[in-house]
Structure formats: structure tokens, C-alpha cells
């Protein structure tokens, strides 16, 4: 059984935002519009945060893509009153949209601020509705949702591998954000396979896990910026 994980190389990230756009398209994320975004209700499973440092004449901006870190010990799962969020056997933290009662306790408990809530009936303006990805279910108003590590892609790859009576090969399945990254900063794969690319990167001396001190055991590993 695989244990899916991800590395994000902050030296490679250019802050282009392709991963955000790809994630929106892949996972049928609703468009909340500019007014709602002003109200702090921007709706992303993956965000690129900017960190500004330095003096005015010599500003330095660094970028950091943040998403659900798929904890092996997830605080959100522990507090859910109705089993609507769970960690599956491959380590992906999922959300049952049809059971969630919208209490937002998981959002309050998540140290990574990774979950988002459907404040209104979601909308897909223009032809977004027609272009929806059929592999990913649409979410109704009033429920919490989150990054699934493109779980539908994992399922598809697993079915394929089973049909061909083999294991999933490293690099065979990847997430939409990793696929779309022009700098190849994001790598997805099996952390339990010591030879996989993601495992090798996660062993790098630059690797760190966000807020590892909280004991959440995240499976998104950052490679620290050196330049």
C-alpha cells in the first residue's frame, strides 16, 4: 500500500500561480468572485503565499505554495463530530461532502488553515460548468472541502495497474498542481517506496515538514530555499 506524499522545492518555485489555476480546473472549484475574495473568502485548495522581507529599496519576495499537508495524525479528523473527514489507508485525508454538517470544527482545529467552506451556493460562471471534470464531484453549499491529493487520479492509476497485474510505477500518477508546474518544483509519489523520486527528495538535507513540532506528521515536505 502506497503512502502518498509531496515535495515542494522552494528554490524552484517562481510564484507563477499555475498550480492554483490547474487545481481549480481539475477539482471543479467554484469561483467566488472579487467581492467575496475581498471578504477573505477566496476559495482555493492550494494557495501561493507571498512573504515580503527586506528594506524598501531592496525588497525580497519569496513564494510558498500551501495546501493540505495530509497529516498522518490529522487534528481535523479527531474533532469531526460525524465521521465526515477521515484519513484513508493510503494516508490521504478526505472529506465526505454528503455527510458534512458544516460545523467548521475541522477548520478551527486545522493548524495549516487548509480547509475551505462553501459560504454560498457554489457557482461556476460562464462555460466552467460545461468544462467540469467528471471525475470530481461538485460540492453543495454549507459544507467543508479540501485538497484530496487528486485522489481520483490515484484511483484511476490503481485501476489501470490492477488491470495490468502490476504495481503502480513511480511517476505514473501525479497531481494537477505537480503536473502543471513549469519549474517542476512539485513532486508527487509514494513516500513508503525508498527509491521513489519523492522519497529521495524528502531525504534531502534541505527538507523540512511544516510545523512538524505539532506531531501532525505532515506528508507535504518543503525543500528550504537556499539562494
Amino acid at each position: 500500500m502506497a503512502r502518498w506524499g509531496m515535495t515542494i522545492d522552494l528554490d524552484r518555485c517562481t510564484g507563477c500561480g499555475n498550480c492554483m489555476a490547474a487545481c481549480h480546473q481539475e477539482n471543479n472549484l467554484a469561483a467566488v468572485g472579487a467581492a467575496e475574495t475581498q471578504e477573505n473568502r477566496a476559495f482555493h485548495w492550494l494557495r501561493v503565499l507571498r512573504e515580503v522581507s527586506g528594506e524598501e529599496a531592496n525588497l525580497e519576495v519569496t513564494y510558498k505554495p500551501v495546501l493540505c499537508v495530509q497529516c498522518d495524525n490529522p487534528p481535523c479528523v479527531r474533532v469531526c463530530p460525524v465521521h465526515a473527514t477521515y484519513r484513508n489507508e493510503e494516508g490521504i485525508v478526505g472529506q465526505v461532502y454528503s455527510r458534512c454538517i458544516g460545523c467548521r470544527y475541522c477548520m478551527a482545529a486545522c493548524p495549516y488553515n487548509a480547509k475551505v467552506f462553501n459560504w454560498y451556493e457554489p457557482e461556476w460562471p460562464g462555460d466552467l460548468q460545461r468544462k467540469a471534470n467528471p471525475d470530481v464531484s461538485l460540492r453543495p453549499k454549507g459544507v467543508v472541502e479540501k485538497c484530496t491529493f487528486c485522489h481520483h487520479r490515484v484511483i484511476r492509476a490503481r485501476e489501470q495497474a490492477r488491470a495490468e497485474e502490476r504495481e503502480i510505477r513511480d511517476g505514473e500518477v501525479t497531481t494537477a498542481c505537480a503536473e502543471s508546474c513549469p519549474a517542476q518544483a512539485i513532486v508527487f509519489g509514494d513516500l513508503d517506496d525508498p527509491d521513489s523520486r519523492v522519497s529521495r527528495l524528502a531525504r534531502s538535507p534541505r527538507a523540512y515538514r511544516p510545523h512538524a513540532d505539532l506531531g501532525t506528521r505532515p506528508k507535504v515536505v518543503y525543500l528550504a530555499q537556499q539562494e
Binding site: R78, V79, P81, V82, A84, C100, I101, G102, C103
Partner: peptide
Amino acid sequence: PVLDLGRPDRMLNIFSAGRLQSPL
């Protein structure tokens, strides 16, 4: 807390699918 629910219509899920491990 019921006012605060996103889906008050699913309130009874706390009985049918309740997790006693949750502080709620």
C-alpha cells in the same frame, strides 16, 4: 450551534453518524 451549522438540515447526522471521540 444549530444556527452556526452550514447544513442544519443534516443536524441529525450527529446521532446517526456521531463520533463520540469528538468534543462536539
